[in-house]
Design a protein around this nucleic acid. Structure first.
Lengths: 215, 215
DNA sequence: CGGTAATCTAGAACAAGTTACAGAGTTGAT
DNA sequence: ATCAACTCTGTAACTTGTTCTAGATTACCG
C-alpha cells in the first residue's frame, strides 16, 4: 500500500479533479511550497526564470520529486495559473461589476483581471506562455483553466443557463482574452489596445442575449 | 567589405522588410533550403521534430550558419510561417469567397485556410506554437505575420479603407483565429467547434460595417 | 592578381529540461 | 516490531537549444 497516510478533502485543491490520488498533509505542503516557489520565480523573470532546479531548491524538494508532482515545466506553470485563477475568482466575486448590460459587466471584469495581471507582468508572462505552449499531454489541466475562466465570465454575465449561442460567444471572448494577453506580453499591443479588443469582443454578448427571453 | 556579391530585389522575400541587408543568390538559396527543411521536418512531427541540428544537416548548412540566418528556433518557425502564409495568400486570392456579407466571406476564407492547415496538422502545430510562444525578441517577425493575416482578412471583406471599428473587429478575429487553432491543435476543440467559433466572431463584422457607408 | 573583411564549416562547449538510479525515509498492515 | 510498498533525496546522465572558436571560403576592391 502507499506511504504517508491519505487525507481526504484536502485544503486548497478545488473539488474538480476526482481522479487525483488524494495527498497527505506533508504532500499538500510540498505541493504548496512548489507552487509558491514557482509563482515567486515567475514573478521575477517570467517563463525563463522558472528553472526546474531552482524551483526544486526553493521549495526544498528533490528534483525527482518536483517531477513527480508536476511532470513538466509546463504542467507546473499551468498548475500555478490554476491556483492564481482560483484566488482571482474569489477576489472578483466579492465586488461584482456594476455595468448595465452583460457585455459591460464582462468587459469590466476582464479589465479588472487584466489590471491584476499588470501588477505582476512576469508572472502573467510565465503562466500565459505556458498555457498556449502546452501540448496534448497537458490538455486536462489547460481545460480546467479554461473552465475556470468560463465560470468567471458567466459569473460576470449573471447567467445560470447560457444558451449554446452564448457559450460560443463566451468561448470567443476567451480566445480574444488569451490572444490579446499574449500580444500585450510580447509588447506588440498597448494596454489601451487590449482594452479596445476586449470591449469589442464583448459586444458579441449583446448580439446573442436579446433573443428568446421568455418561453 | 561584405562577402558574396549583394543582389537587390531578391526572389522570394516580399518587399516588406527594407532593413534586411540584401542577400546574394547563394544566400537566398541557403535560406530557402533552410526554410524548406524546417517545413519538411515540421510536417513530420510538429514543433518538437524541428531540431536545429537536423535542420542544419537537412539544409546542408553548418549549425552556426543556421543561427546566423535565424537567431532561434522560434525565429525559424515564424519565418517558416511567413513563407507559408505568403503562399496561402496567393492561393486564396485566386478564388475569392462568394458569400453575401463580409462576415460570410471572411468566415469562408478562414475556414478555407483552416482546411489547408488540416492537411498538415504537424506543420500547423509547429508554426502556431512558435507564433504564440515567441517572446519580445521575435516581435517584428510576429508582427509581420499578423499584418499578413490582417491583409488576408481585409481582402476577404473587400475593403479598401477600413474604419478603426472594423480594424478592431479584424484584430479580434485574428485573436480568435489563433487561439481557436491552438485549442484544436492541442485536441481540446473539434473542427466543428473551431468552425462555430470563427463564424461567431465574424458576426462582429456585420456589427461594425452598417454605419457610415457614404460620406 | 592580392588583400581584406565578412561568411561559412566543423566541432566543442554550455545551459536547462528531463530521465535514471541507488539508497534512505515513511507508511500502513500484519 | 517487522515487513512490503511506496515516496523522497541526491546526483549523474542524457537531450536539445544556443554559444563559441579556429580555420577554411568567398566576395569585393584596388
Amino acid at each position: 500500500m502507499p506511504a504517508e497516510a491519505k487525507v481526504e478533502a484536502s485544503t486548497s485543491r478545488s473539488a474538480a479533479q476526482s481522479d487525483t490520488p488524494a495527498l497527505t498533509e506533508r504532500q499538500e505542503a510540498r505541493r504548496r511550497r512548489i507552487l509558491h516557489a514557482s509563482a515567486q520565480l515567475a514573478s521575477r523573470g517570467g517563463f525563463d526564470a522558472v528553472q526546474m532546479r531552482e524551483v526544486a531548491e526553493s521549495s526544498q524538494v528533490a528534483l525527482g520529486t518536483l517531477y513527480r508532482y508536476f511532470p513538466s515545466k509546463v504542467h507546473l506553470l499551468v498548475a500555478t495559473m490554476q491556483s492564481q485563477l482560483e484566488h482571482m475568482h474569489g477576489t472578483l466575486r466579492k465586488k461584482p461589476p456594476q455595468g448595465e448590460t452583460a457585455a459591460e459587466r464582462v468587459a469590466q471584469t476582464l479589465m479588472r483581471a487584466f489590471r491584476a495581471l499588470q501588477r505582476e507582468p512576469h508572472l502573467a508572462d510565465a503562466m500565459v506562455r505556458a498555457l498556449t505552449f502546452a501540448d496534448r499531454s497537458v490538455s486536462p489541466e489547460v481545460d480546467q483553466v479554461s473552465r475556470q475562466t468560463t465560470a468567471i465570465i458567466l459569473d460576470a454575465m449573471g447567467l445560470e443557463n447560457p444558451t449554446p449561442d452564448q457559450l460560443s460567444a463566451v468561448r470567443v471572448i476567451e480566445h480574444t482574452w488569451h490572444s490579446a494577453l499574449i500580444t500585450w506580453l510580447s509588447g506588440r499591443a498597448s494596454i489601451a489596445q487590449v482594452k479596445i479588443d476586449i470591449e469589442t469582443v464583448c459586444r458579441l454578448i449583446d448580439l446573442t442575449s436579446p433573443p428568446a427571453p421568455r418561453d
